[in-house]
């Protein structure tokens, strides 16, 4: 039963992830990503981490992808043919993609296939995760928040500069 559920949702996740990459319409891509995230959330439930599953859906499906869709629709990117890029960009894109894929494969093989995984059951309730996050992993946690803060400040600066220009123009 568990295997059937796993393979069904794994297939859903992979297929929709492929649609994200291969489909031309950005709205379809964004929606497929949402479906893929939902399948991923089911994986977390199967791994006995319902807290993570709920967070996955709240943060990614509920907030971030809504914003993605918002931006896509605001810019109205529906049927625009992509401009032809320079061959250097294409080459760089393919090579960096392939390098990233190879690295990912190496680490998957190293840590998931040939390594012994710790046996369950794991404690995954909110209290344990919170205590871990704010005691053992407080430094990475704060680093991530600083990264996000930098992104917000950058976005504000960029939009603010445009606004100032428009104010000064007339």
């Amino acid at each position: 039963m568990e295997f059937a559920i796993f393979f069904f949702f794994a297939a859903v996740a992979v297929i929709f992830a492929l649609v994200v990459v291969l489909h031309r319409n950005p709205v379809v891509g964004a929606l497929s990503l949402v479906a893929s995230f939902f399948a991923l959330a089911v994986m977390y439930v199967l791994l006995e981490a319902p807290f993570l599953a709920a967070l996955q859906v709240i943060v990614y499906a509920g907030a971030i992808m809504v914003l993605f869709l918002f931006v896509i629709m605001l810019l109205n990117l529906q049927h625009v043919a992509e401009p032809v890029t320079r061959p250097v960009q294409q080459f760089l894109g393919y090579t960096s993609g392939a390098a990233f894929g190879l690295g990912l494969l190496y680490y998957i093989v190293k840590y998931a296939v040939f390594a012994k995984l710790p046996a369950g059951p794991f404690v995954t309730d909110a209290r344990t995760i919170g205590i871990k996050l704010f005691e053992a992993y407080v430094f990475p946690f704060e680093m991530v928040s600083i990264l996000l803060l930098a992104a917000i400040v950058g976005a504000l600066l960029l939009s603010g500069r445009q606004y100032q220009k428009r104010e000064a123009a007339p």
Partner: peptide, 14 residues
């Protein structure tokens, strides 16, 4: 469910 509230939030946000 021991994270029932979060699940409700997750579902309603979609």
């Amino acid at each position: 469910v021991n994270v029932g509230l979060l699940l409700i939030l997750a579902l309603t946000s979609t």
